[in-house]
Design a protein around this nucleic acid. Structure first.
Lengths: 149, 149
DNA sequence: GATAAAGTTTACGTAAACGTAAAGTAAATT
DNA sequence: AATTTACTTTACGTTTACGTAAACTTTATC
């Protein structure tokens, strides 16, 4: 198995995922990352790296850090968990699935509405072009634009 | 055309969409809803209702109120907008589409990982069951469970 | 050995999205 | 007339997710 033994400094991770070191430290503070230490300095494992990736994806999907942490914790518990924990995990997975279904619907709806929005924009633009052309035509018939009542 | 003339009170809307009246007032405060007034009392149109629905969907999709407001404003401007505004709207629509693509990827990834998570749970559960059965078997061979060194 | 570069802790500040309480108005009901 | 019900404004409080600044260490470089 690919037991990746690489480690990462805080700024390496921050740069790779385009977040601040402040954020990374905050995630540790909230219990989402658990880097080891060499002296004071944090040393992040590839597990931490994966978790950071998951954190950020969670954010894009509208998950709070607390929600993501709960998932992490439950996930860890599946390794040692008793029956009750495992069953809880399964129901939570079900809930998350429902949430994802909802999001997929939301996205589909949004895409449709963006289609009509784009169409409206293009129509409006076409209208503007048309009026421009008409005005040019009028100018040719009455040059120097002599407006009259 | 179906020019829906229904109006809604604040609590009607709040109840329908399961939000607090506080939230609805806040959305108005931020310029996302524009109810008319009878005296002091807010009167919401069906346009407001639609917008509230969009606000909440936006939230589920991880949009901030400010983002949603920007979309509302741009949408309104497509009715009167000049060329520049319209083109801006089109590029913003493009950006949002890219965002939706990203979200779809995120969701697909999440679904895969939830599949493996569920599998892991079920395996762990099966293991527990197995161990239970083995213990029962042992008890039958050595009843009253007489443990020995 | 001074200085720069990257890391650290501590701690106060901030924006977003409301919650919550206080105090008042306006209409409907008993 | 008194009370309930629904609405209002004003305003301070709260949580989340960091930003930002100050004051240190540790390690690498000139």
């Amino acid at each position: 198995m690919a037991e990746e033994k690489r480690t990462y400094s805080i700024s390496e991770l921050a740069k790779e995922f385009d977040v601040t070191t402040r954020s990374v430290r905050f995630y540790e503070d909230q219990g989402l990352l658990k880097p080891s230490r060499r002296g004071q300095t944090r040393i992040f494992s590839s597990k931490d790296r994966v978790r950071l990736k998951l954190i950020l994806r969670g954010k894009r999907m509208g998950f709070s850090l607390a929600e993501t942490k709960e998932l992490f914790d439950l996930w860890d518990e599946t390794l040692t968990g008793n029956e009750k924990q495992l069953l809880k995990m399964l129901t939570i997975l079900d809930n998350k699935r429902a949430q994802l279904e909802q999001q997929k619907n939301d996205i589909a709806q949004a895409e449709m509405e963006m289609d009509t929005a784009e169409a409206r924009c293009r129509e409006a633009l076409a209208d503007l072009q048309k009026r421009k052309r008409q005005q040019k035509g009028a100018e040719r018939e009455a040059p120097a634009s002599a407006e009259q009542k």
